[in-house]
Design a protein around this nucleic acid. Structure first.
Lengths: 160, 160
DNA sequence: ATCTTCACCGGATATCATCCGGAACATGCC
DNA sequence: GGCATGTTCCGGATGATATCCGGTGAAGAT
């Protein structure tokens, strides 16, 4: 299903624009890339049905709702039994502070990305939600100081 | 500027819906939350101007364009001079494979999230783009096996 | 009790997304 | 070359939509 698509320069410009701001009108987007509204609309429709664009989503700033402190928590599980892993995953995903959970290789098993109000809140999560779980062997916290620019998916070379 | 906003249950329902699919029409959204189109429109406008919703963005699937392999690369810099850090940051952000770069505390200085075609491509990035940089002291790769569900920003309790 | 504020509503209007037929172009085949 | 085929584009038509505005009622303050 995730067939690799061939994208021409116009497709890339459309993707670049929509990754930055998808609330742009089709008309404005068409002007931007130099197409008629109908052609542009068809391009976008194709990118969606081809699975290149998987969705249009609103981005919410955690800081605006009192969760300005971000952290990665690198987690090592003790026994690797499937049911324990699933239970851990399900529990972590229900936490409102969870932004993303990555199952990774290496000495750590999971990277958990959280957004919390303050360090006390972070400590609470770790103590009450993670350290108490028997399957959690070790958890190391990395505060996120900065995230220098979100990088959209972009072409290998310059956009024509 | 990131003043903490007070959100009522209707605001949360709007945020939950828009974080999942912002291409919904205002009319459909209004029906969903039980408001008139004008009231709903005003709510969304406020959430935007208050900085809760920071943008509407198209989500592009890296796998659909031939970058199905994801990894975190935990990077330690050698000297911590500001200009070296900035140079490193700038260089990494220009890589098309870069999805996000996090400046973190702890033994590692950066977490670099990349999407590449295959393991050879990943090795190429590490060897040619990272290991060759003099300021990079150490880089440890964590392949991302899975990312069990992207979690939107959501309220602390249930949504009314 | 009166005033003020606020969220909501319904209607009006300009704008927009979406569909369709046909033109222009490239490509491959005879 | 001549022709068939497929693709991409365009402009117009139309139905739906975003967006604005004045009015209304409820809640809280004075």
């Amino acid at each position: 299903m995730p067939e690799v698509q061939h994208l021409d320069p116009v497709d890339w410009r459309i993707l670049t624009i929509l990754q930055d701001d998808a609330s742009i009108t089709n008309k404005a987007l068409a002007d931007e890339v130099g197409l008629s509204t109908s052609s542009c609309h068809e391009r976008v429709r194709r990118l969606r049905s081809a699975g290149v664009i998987t969705g249009i989503k609103a981005v919410v700033d955690p800081a605006a709702i009192g969760r300005g402190l971000h952290a990665f928590i690198a987690i090592r599980l003790r026994p690797h039994r499937r049911d324990l892993v699933d239970a851990f995953t399900a529990a972590v995903l229900t936490l409102p502070e969870t932004l993303a959970l990555y199952n990774v290789s290496g000495p750590e098993d999971f990277f958990l990305h959280v957004a919390v109000a303050d360090s006390a809140d972070l400590q609470r999560i770790i103590m009450e939600q993670l350290a108490t779980r028997p399957e959690v062997g070790h958890a190391q916290t990395h505060l996120i100081f900065d995230r220098p620019l979100a990088a959209p998916v972009r072409p290998r070379r310059s956009i024509s």
